[in-house]
Design a protein around this nucleic acid. Structure first.
Lengths: 301, 301
DNA sequence: GGACCCGATAGGCATTGCCTATCACGACAG
DNA sequence: CTGTCGTGATAGGCAATGCCTATCGGGTCC
């Protein structure tokens, strides 16, 4: 049995006239005659009593027609919901963001995203890289903003902007007198975040170290780390977007000689179907951050 | 969109594996692949995210799938109801019967009908011929038992049995001494039913009259008429099936010379679809009344 | 009796649904 | 690192289906 047949059935039951029902269905009278008879044969039930005067629903038809109406209504509901879902730029969009990026990037891009994509309900989700990748692969996230390269053919990424690192020094630090600091000069007293933060590895790599000082120290957030530096416990590398927060904490920032930086990428499953949403989100963010790298690298924030 | 497609959708959503879903649907994997993609294109919505590892329902799919399930359930309900309705010998069967026949025929045939057609719920409906015909044409009845010929190409009939008339005489009537009474001999003092009863016309015609005695008399039921005759107010013709009731009322019955009779017919709309039910009902009734005409005509009841 | 209305039937054409065979691609093992 | 396996996508061909126009048949109404 076909869904079309049910619509035909409803039309005939409503009009009690095959010609007019056919017209209402947009088909010819003979077609409706044939299809109706086929439906009756398929069901094994005579649905209408035909005479030259009238086409009258049988008792059996009366018992079936409510179900037919309900089925057609459900299918129409499917079509209606599908239509409202057609816009890939609408609906929930679960976006993972790493913790060293979220507090500083989100305030910058949230309003532009809302303005450019008013129907897209972006739900930020803040966790460390590995957790985000797991959730991404598990369909718990639609995309993620990461600062690392991603591997595997199941994921695709798009670079959005480069985020330069800056040397973060306590006000009393000897290097404060320098206009530019070489990355390696920080190696001796650098403080880094706890394991799992990509910023930890990036900072250590930039200054040429492979193990961290104060390995007993488990600093879970960049804001804690900044306060530690401000209090004189050591130095660190801060990502450019956190420059304002660092200065607010009383930290002195200096550009780096080799202009160490990390690239922030939008990452998604290669099979994720809402390409338009990915592209739009990526474009809004990179557009908002255009020219940021140059300004930040030179210490102008 | 097709109903089949919804079943495919449900299968893929359940198995999250196109090959196995295809197997469950009894089709090949390529067919399911193609149909699923067509459905997605028709809805304008990506329903599943495919990777080499898994086929995962999208958020949009989750919103649609409940409607799909409901639609399929409704259609399955249609099929189930249709299956239960397939037997034309089952269900309500509204049978009109004229008043001069119903009280005497129904007790005879009701049990045989119930035994032969246990699933057929026969609902007797007692009214005069013209009313029954109107209801029959208006689909309020499925068939009727009448004692008149029917006209019009919209109705079809089948003779079931012949019902002889008998002369009904008060015990003191002069004709009681005769073994056989000629129809015309009753013309002088015959009593008949009120207008609208076919028996009225049949009785008058049999005895050669064209107007009735006691035209102010409106006797609405045969049982009243029989009591009138028993009380000596006149004679009448009784249909054979009412012979027992007439004798119980104290009436003397005599066979008629010309064996006047009426034919009881089953009548239905030519377009009425439940032919099997008509035939079965007719056959049970005529079988039960087989041989009745001969016995009744000779006064043996 | 002829025109008209209505549903049924016939024949032909384009679309569709399905099949088998094959491809493309990633995973996994030797 | 290469061959094999598993999985979904693609291609080509065939039969069934749905639809059309033209026509029929039966009944009604001037």
């Amino acid at each position: 049995m076909n869904l079309r047949d049910l619509r035909y059935l409803l039309a005939v039951a409503e009009h009690e006239h095959i010609g007019r029902a056919a017209e209402a269905c947009g088909i010819s009278q003979p077609t409706l005659s044939v299809q109706l008879r086929k439906l009756e044969e398929a069901l094994g039930v005579t649905l209408f009593e035909r005479s030259s005067k009238a086409v009258t629903p049988t008792a059996a038809c009366g018992l079936l027609i409510d179900h037919a109406r309900a089925a057609v209504a459900e299918v129409d509901a499917i079509l209606a919901v599908a239509r409202s879902l057609q816009d890939p730029l609408a609906g929930r969009f679960r976006l993972g963001i790493i913790p060293t990026l979220a507090p500083y990037l989100l305030p910058l891009v949230f309003a532009p995203l809302r303005d450019a994509l008013p129907a897209l309900e972006i739900e930020p989700w803040e966790e460390q890289t590995e957790v985000l990748l797991k959730r991404l692969r598990g369909h718990e996230l639609d995309a993620a903003l990461l600062a690392t390269d991603v591997d595997g053919p199941d994921l695709t990424s798009r670079p959005l902007f480069a985020e330069p690192f800056l040397a973060a020094l306590p006000p009393e630090h000897p290097l404060v007198g320098r206009a530019v600091v070489a990355e390696a000069e920080l190696a001796s007293d650098i403080l880094v975040l706890a394991d799992g933060h990509c910023l930890r590895d990036q900072a250590l790599e930039a200054c040429g170290r492979h193990g961290a000082l104060g390995s007993t120290l488990r600093v879970a957030s960049l804001s804690t780390l900044l306060n530690m530096v401000a209090a004189g416990y050591g130095t660190t590398l801060v990502p450019g977007l956190a420059a304002g927060a660092a200065q607010d904490a009383g930290i002195v920032l200096r550009p780096l000689a080799c202009q160490a930086r990390r690239t922030v990428r939008l990452v998604w499953r290669a099979s994720f179907p809402r390409r338009a949403a990915l592209q739009a989100v990526g474009t809004v963010i990179s557009g908002r951050l255009r020219g940021f790298a140059e300004g930040a690298a030179s210490g102008i924030v």
